[in-house]
Simulated assay, not measured.
Amino acid sequence: MSDPRPTDPPPRVEVRLPGGRTLPGRLLAWRQGPDGAWWAQAIIQVPAAAIRQVAGEDYTAVPREPAPRPSAGGYVLAADTRPGQPRTAVLHAADCWTLGKAAHWTTITPVDDPDQARALLLIDDTTACDACGPEQHLPTAP
């Protein structure tokens, strides 16, 4: 049996959740408990809405990996979703570096259509990102 190279991704698994639903995952390790039962340490991806942050924990160092920018261009809308705060949104190029520093209360929504991106900038609570300047890359309106 050969050892996997450190650059190889962990092997794929299916993780069965309560209720019978399964999610794809990656198996990191097997661990045996003091009672002899085996446990799997695995990585799964779940929708962000399924995660509840724990009060007192610091999430600022958790990396964010925005979706790659489509080859034909693309935009995303970053909206502030804090309760009790005024709704504000910022239009970004999909590969804007500032999206990696977005706060946990920020909702990121892809905007694939340039006309829709242009229309979003006409809404009072929506601005263009100062870092990536997405409005400079929008095709001119017909």
Rank of each mutant, 00 (worst) to 15 (best):
V76E: 07
C129K: 04
T81C: 00
T81G: 04
T109D: 02
L122D: 15
A93F: 05
D80S: 09
D35E: 07
G133Q: 14
T98K: 10
P63V: 04
E135R: 04
T22D: 01
V46N: 01
V13E: 09
P110R: 08
I51S: 07
R12W: 09
L121N: 03
L99S: 00
Q32T: 12
G56D: 01
A67Y: 11
R12M: 13
P63C: 08
D125K: 13
L77M: 00
L120A: 01
D80E: 10
T106E: 13
I43H: 03
D80A: 10
T107H: 12
Q45I: 01
D112M: 09
G73Y: 00
C96P: 09
V54R: 11
D112A: 15
D115R: 13
T60Y: 12
T106A: 11
T106M: 12
Q41G: 13
V90Y: 03
Q32R: 08
D8H: 08
D112H: 13
G20W: 07
D35P: 00
P110W: 06
H92F: 15
G84P: 08
I123D: 07
D115K: 13
G25V: 07
T140D: 08
C129T: 03
W39M: 03
I44G: 00
P83I: 02
D130P: 15
A89I: 03
P68W: 07
M1K: 01
W38N: 11
Q85L: 12
I44V: 12
G25R: 06
Q85D: 14
H92D: 13
T22Q: 03
T60R: 15
P4G: 05
I43R: 04
P114S: 13
D112E: 08
P24A: 14
Y75W: 15
P63S: 09
T106L: 08
R87A: 15
D58F: 07
D112C: 05
M1H: 01
Q136L: 11
E14S: 09
R82V: 04
G56C: 02
T60G: 13
I43M: 04
D58C: 03
D58R: 03
S71I: 11
L91G: 04
R118E: 12
P4F: 06
I123E: 11
A117I: 00
A37C: 06
D115M: 10
D35A: 04
A93W: 08
L99M: 04
L121S: 04
A78G: 05
A55N: 10
G20D: 07
L28T: 09
G19W: 12
G20Q: 06
V90D: 03
A131G: 11
Q116R: 14
A128S: 08
G20L: 06
V111Q: 03
A37H: 04
